[in-house]
Design a binder for these strands. Structure first.
Length: 494
RNA sequence: GACCCUAUCGUCUAGUGGUUAGGACAUCAGGUUUUCAUCCUGAAAACCGGGGUUCGACUCCCCGUAGGGUCACCA
């Protein structure tokens, strides 16, 4: 329910809402809508309201609502009011506000601004098809619009299936969109619109209008796909005597084929990006630049700095294609900004999940040193597993051929490995550091002419991989015993 | 099909009548490096088309074209 102080909104106060329906995941497109609302509210010291539009009981699910809330929290997009749920703000839910809607619905019915319609869905569908086929805009014929009162009463008593329609009169509707300028529509092309299935079951276009008014929303910032809903909503506002909020329709986020981002493009939950090892700050930075930019050449922005720079005037009009490569770049950038300690903490869950380490007996310092040498190679946290697994495995598995540098023969290879073993065994464990190892080995590699002759087999013997961090860094972390052991194991492969 | 929206490098974009059309990602080349990544340098890469308006259009107007959105008892 709406709290008392809700009605005491100061004139001119900025109030926006993010109003997702829990019929799908909180994906990149949804998140961007939430972000822009949040930024606009913060920028103007306004309020940011979360309203779950769950009037459609069939399609709404708690799972999606949970996902939306988790996503918002992860990105740091906290809403600024709502019903008290254990000391925190919960979301407003339309499903909990049916009384409010039915009050307004009855008002419209009484004033004959809305009426019951008894046409069947099949009938309506056939009509639509026909109208489209002859090049007309599909719209309701108005068949039930002037049914005698007694007939309506009778049908209702008979429980004849019905819905409630809003009377649309022909007129020009002009509204200003903060992003697109003046937009004009002819309501004559709309027909009478369905606003509720019954008194207790309002439909989207109606509940939105009621809530935006009741919640004193000053700016409706939403996706471009709502442009054609706006004139309908304006008409209802006028019928109900509500004032009109400002509108801003955001360009859509597009898939690679330039159509609206959807499941078809694998538009998954933002939370799944978290699982993959993307950082919230990278996601926020990335999606803020989809359809907006500050006008200068800076491209790295935190949430607070976005708040400072944000303005609706700089929002783009055209849709923006979601390009994951840029997200990856940004993510790598933000990963590089983390401290080694923090990075180790963040990587730990991925290593645990892979079964490579157990939380109980993990040495955080050891982990930190491993993660550190892969710090600037990481684009996603999840990559840490594949990159560093060889530190946690007893036995490495790789093809013998991987050891071979250029055209070396088996004999030469064996020679290299033995030489490495000989050099390293002279260094005692107490002096086993990257620098000492390097000092001991590098002069020999210079002598050999091609450094790869020694260094390449060393890398592969230690890591089992063709690309890795530097072999001296790896050797230092592995320790003397393990290093020598792996060199011997490599030799055994030959 | 009707209505509406949009249009600068492959992608995200800067640009508001006079610019060598700028940046970022991606790509390519070079440098650094034993590899990969990072980092540095450089290259290639765009104003959808046609008419106007104007001394002058990427920029303003019109018409095309293309793409997209919406036309539910979904939101």
């Amino acid at each position: 329910m709406i709290p008392e102080d809700f009605q005491l909104v100061k004139p001119g106060e900025i109030r926006v809402r993010f109003a997702p329906s829990p019929t799908g995941y909180f994906h990149i497109g949804t998140a961007r809508g939430a972000l822009f609302n949040y930024l606009f509210a913060q920028k103007n010291q306004g309020s940011f309201v979360l309203r779950i539009e769950d009037t459609d009981k069939e399609r709404s699910s708690p799972e999606f609502e949970k996902d939306i809330i988790e996503g918002l929290k992860w990105l740091g997009l906290d809403w600024s009011e709502g019903p008290d749920v254990g000391g925190a703000y919960g979301p407003y839910r339309q499903s909990e506000r049916t009384d409010t809607y039915s009050d307004y619905l009855e008002k419209l019915l009484v004033q004959d601004k809305a009426y019951y319609c008894f046409c069947s869905e099949d009938e309506l569908e056939a009509q639509r098809q026909y109208q489209m086929s002859i090049g007309e805009t599909p719209r309701y014929s108005g068949k039930c619009s002037d049914l005698p009162k007694e007939t309506v009463k009778k049908y209702l008593e008979e429980k004849k299936p019905s819905i409630i329609r809003f009377r649309v009169h022909q007129k020009k509707i002009v509204f200003k969109d903060l992003i697109r300028g003046e937009l004009e529509f002819d309501s004559g092309l709309m027909g009478d619109i369905v606003i509720a299935k019954d008194l207790l079951t309002p439909l989207y276009n109606f509940s939105v209008v009621v809530d935006d008014f009741e919640m004193k929303i000053s700016h409706v910032i939403r996706g471009e796909d709502h442009i054609s809903n706006t004139p309908k909503q304006i008409l209802m506002q006028e019928a109900l005597g509500f004032n009109r909020p400002e509108y801003a329709h955001l360009p859509l986020i597009l898939g690679p084929d330039r159509s609206k981002l959807s499941k078809r493009h694998g538009a998954v939950s933002v939370v799944s990006y978290k699982k993959e090892g993307y950082l919230a700050e990278a996601i926020v930075n990335f999606i803020s630049f989809l359809g907006w930019n500050p006008g200068d050449e800076r491209e790295i922005y935190s949430l607070p700095s976005l708040v400072k720079e944000f303005s609706l005037e700089k929002v783009q009009k055209g849709g923006a294609v979601f390009n994951i490569k840029k997200l990856d770049y940004l993510n790598g950038f933000y990963i590089r900004k983390k401290s080694p300690e923090r990075l180790a903490e963040m990587c730990l869950p991925y290593l645990e999940e892979s079964g490579l380490v157990k939380k109980e007996n993990v040495d955080l310092n050891y982990l930190k040193s491993i993660v550190s040498i892969y710090h600037e190679r990481l684009k996603k946290l999840s990559e840490i597993v594949e990159l560093t697994d060889f530190f946690f495995r007893e036995k490495l598995e790789y093809e013998k051929e991987l050891l071979r540098w250029k055209e070396m023969t088996d004999e030469e290879l064996k020679n290299s490995l033995e030489k490495l073993e000989k050099i390293f065994s002279k260094i005692n464990s107490g002096a086993w550091t990257k620098v000492n190892l390097e000092n001991a080995l590098m002069p020999k590699t210079e002598k050999a002419g091609d450094r790869g002759i020694l260094l390449w087999p060393l890398r592969v013997a230690l890591s089992g991989k063709k690309s890795s961090a530097g072999p001296f860094e790896i050797a230092e972390i592995l320790g003397k015993e393990k290093t020598l052991e792996r060199l011997r194991e490599a030799k055994n492969l030959l």
